[in-house]
């Protein structure tokens, strides 16, 4: 019916995917935009994990960063502003085998989509959620976002943002059933890749805040952090990625952190100078919602019919 055929398992033993197999056309972000680094990191993970493009779905909302799926050669869903997470969860709910990457901006996730953010973390469905935090609304041209630093001049607050910014990692660590929170920066490819990789390996919702440069609208926000690595605090040990010696050497400030300790994670998350990067928290034992939503998946039509007749019986006179 409707042109749908029987279940058919992919059975091609010797497919090898190169980076090109994940490259979906020229990205049209501004020169120097941090989004590109994230795209490259994700493409590398797909390649290293040999994810079949047809079983990988990139889901996003609306914003510069939400253009992400268009530049991947996987399946993609570029939906509504703020609503990437419900869509991603819906996809996962009955297709648990699909690998999902979510791209969402600081406005997309922490403002218009904030309700979904709280609940998607609680649903804890297996996916990588990348918060592209450029501290601004990029696509709509420089309006204040929930993460805009206080005092920064924007088109909606030309005399400077009035309120202190929201801390996305601290907030996420306050949500029920949180299972993975990490922080990284777009300008350190080794740390970015390694962090996204542990996020990918975690089963559950891996929330990764990526400080993302927007040379067009928030040119100076991350300059100091970028120029002076001592303003970053490299978390080591626990679930944090281990960098190769040379990459690690770039961080004068390092701290061993027990990412299984939620209280410790919350303390570290609150810290902004130096800004912690690495895995703040991970609990692999938290329940995943897809373990419930997949109930009855694959039930045969014959069994469905039987079940249905039994349901009819309940109303029979």
């Amino acid at each position: 019916m409707f042109g749908l055929k029987d279940d058919w398992e992919l059975d091609v033993p010797d497919r090898y995917f190169s980076l090109e197999d994940y490259e979906g056309g020229t990205a049209r972000w501004c020169p120097g935009c941090g989004d590109l680094a994230v795209l490259t990191a994700v493409q590398r993970i797909c390649r290293d994990e040999q994810l079949p493009p047809e079983r990988t779905v990139c889901v996003s909302g609306i914003g510069c960063s939400s253009r992400f799926p268009h530049y991947m050669k996987t399946y993609g869903f570029h939906g509504l502003h703020g609503r990437a997470l419900p869509v991603a969860c819906g996809i996962k709910s009955r297709r648990p085998e699909l690998k999902i990457f979510v791209a969402t901006g600081d406005g997309d996730c922490c403002s218009i989509g904030a309700g979904h953010w709280v609940h998607a973390v609680r649903y804890n469905m297996d996916m990588v959620v990348m918060l592209f935090d450029n501290a601004i609304y990029g696509l709509t041209k420089k309006q204040t976002s929930p993460t805009t630093p206080i005092g920064l001049s924007t088109n909606t607050h030309p005399r400077g943002a009035w309120l202190p910014p929201l801390n996305p990692v601290a907030a996420t660590l306050g949500f029920a059933n949180v299972s993975f929170v990490a922080q990284t920066v777009d300008w350190n490819p080794a740390h970015l890749y390694a962090t996204l990789k542990v996020a990918y390996d975690h089963k559950g919702l891996s929330f990764v805040r990526i400080l993302q440069r927007c040379p067009t609208y928030t040119k100076d926000v991350f300059t100091e952090l970028q120029k002076d690595p001592s303003q970053l605090l490299l978390l080591t040990g626990g679930d944090s990625p281990t960098l190769d010696a040379q990459s690690a050497k770039m961080f004068p400030n390092q701290q061993a952190h027990d990412s299984r300790d939620l209280e410790a994670a919350r303390r570290v998350a609150d810290q902004t100078a130096p800004l912690p990067i690495g895995v703040l928290f991970r609990d692999p034992a938290r329940p995943c919602y897809e373990d419930f939503t997949t109930v009855g998946l694959g039930m045969s039509p014959a069994d469905k019919l039987k079940g249905l007749e039994r349901e009819f019986d309940k109303f029979a006179v």
């Binding site: 889901v59 869903f77 939906g79 609503r83 419900p86 969860c89 819906g90 996962k92 979904h116 609940h119």
Partner: peptide
């Protein structure tokens, strides 16, 4: 968590 999410969830499932 709300009707928007309900609709998004259904749309996502259908897309899949």
């Amino acid at each position: 968590e709300d009707e928007i999410a309900a609709m998004g969830f259904a749309v996502g499932a259908s897309y899949a």
